[in-house]
Computed example of a mutant assay.
Amino acid sequence: MCERAHTGTALSAGQYPTSPEGLTVCAVTGTRKPRRATVHDVAAAAGVSRGTVNRVLNGGYVSTDARAAIEAAIAEVGYVPNRAASNLARQRSQAVGFLALEPHSLLLEDPNIGAIMLGANAVLSLADHQMVSLVIDSDRDMQRVGRYLSGGFVDGAIIVSARSHDPITRLIAEIKLPATFVGHPPDLDRSIPFVGIDNIGSSRAITERLLATGRTRVGMIAAALDRDSGADRLAGFQQALGDLFDPTLVVDVPLYDYAYGVKGMRALLDREPALDGVFAASDAVAAGALETLREAGRRVPEDVGLVGFDDSSWALRTQPPLSTVHQPARDIGRNAAESVLRQIAGDPVESGVLLDSPVVWRQSA
């Protein structure tokens, strides 16, 4: 660490002696450290006032000649703006929180959450904003993250997997934090925008396609019914079946998870051994169901047609590959980030954006 040199000049705390060349001298190592260029240096080199330099740095108006002179001076003296000080003055953090309300295990395994995160980060990075990942897996996490958001450490938030009556939803509305939801919780404050897909319509479409293959006893492994995505996928399944819908052929599991696909499929086969079609609420659930069907000696698609949802990497890992619904996860992340940035800037945004989610038909059905 460089300490103040012992010279005949009295120095205030935190001040270091400089050489005639404008270098800071380290008394401990004897090395010379280049002094950081300041706004004063830029102003002197450009022949303008410090206020004119600050207007350029903050996006204000100056004449074309003055701007050109200041930009040349910045390059000449090697000035780098102090973003931390600027953000403090504007009461901005230049950061956006990415809130995933999922168990830690699922967060690491779910390719959709990862793709949404990467899409959001790409947009935030281009806007010089840092993405802060905040995982909420417990009541303690909820309280901690709530304090963090209330403390002004982020300028906005993207919320993934919110459930009905989540405290975090109410908090964001109360503190008026610029935010966008991925999905549309039923009790969502109408002032908070969302980005998602038509889960009902897409689930209805893939179930109708499955029924068109001649399946007559079709069940569903319905996951995450405490979220809009899970509840809507079940609603679409029921709409497609109409009078053929049998509630005993719906198994409810808590998460979009491979292990719950295994358990859910075992429960379905116990209820209806003659089952010949299955809609799994996600590709991970469908992959678990496929493993159980194999163990039971049921061939896919010859004996049982199986479809999933998401068109994630799970859909291509299985043999046969899964028929599924394409969820544009990266585009969802990008749209959510753009929505938050527009709100931070004070620009108008759409209250809700639904992206296309077409059926992708493969060999599993």
Rank of each mutant, 00 (worst) to 15 (best):
V62W: 06
V62Q: 06
V62R: 04
S63W: 05
S63Q: 09
S63E: 11
T64P: 04
T64C: 04
T64W: 07
D65R: 13
D65Q: 15
D65C: 01
A66H: 10
R67Y: 05
A68S: 15
A68D: 15
A68V: 12
A69C: 02
A69H: 02
A69L: 12
A69I: 00
I70T: 05
I70P: 02
I70V: 14
E71N: 13
E71I: 08
E71V: 11
E71K: 13
A72V: 04
A72Q: 15
A72R: 15
A73C: 10
A73I: 09
A73E: 05
A73S: 10
A73W: 02
A73T: 06
A73D: 05
I74V: 15
I74A: 04
I74N: 01
I74E: 03
I74W: 04
A75C: 01
A75E: 15
A75K: 14
A75W: 01
E76W: 01
V77Y: 03
V77R: 05
G78F: 08
G78E: 11
G78Y: 07
Y79N: 03
Y79E: 04
Y79T: 04
V80M: 13
V80K: 10
V80A: 13
P81S: 13
R83I: 11
R83P: 00
R83S: 12
R83C: 01
R83F: 08
A84K: 06
A84I: 15
A84C: 03
A85H: 12
A85P: 07
A85M: 10
A85C: 09
A85R: 12
A85D: 07
S86E: 11
S86N: 12
S86Y: 02
S86Q: 15
N87L: 14
N87P: 01
L88K: 10
L88D: 09
A89T: 12
R90I: 04
R90F: 05
R90T: 03
R90M: 14
R90N: 13
R90L: 14
Q91W: 06
Q91H: 13
Q91G: 07
R92H: 12
S93H: 09
S93C: 12
S93P: 06
S93R: 09
Q94L: 12
A95Y: 03
A95R: 14
V96A: 05
V96L: 07
V96E: 02
G97E: 02
G97M: 04
G97D: 06
F98M: 14
F98V: 11
F98H: 00
F98K: 00
F98S: 03
F98W: 02
L99I: 15
L99P: 02
L99F: 08
A100R: 01
A100M: 10
A100D: 04
L101P: 00
L101G: 01
L101C: 10
P103R: 07
P103D: 07
H104E: 10
H104D: 05
H104G: 00
H104L: 11
S105A: 13
S105I: 08
S105K: 08
L106F: 05
L107W: 03
L107Y: 12
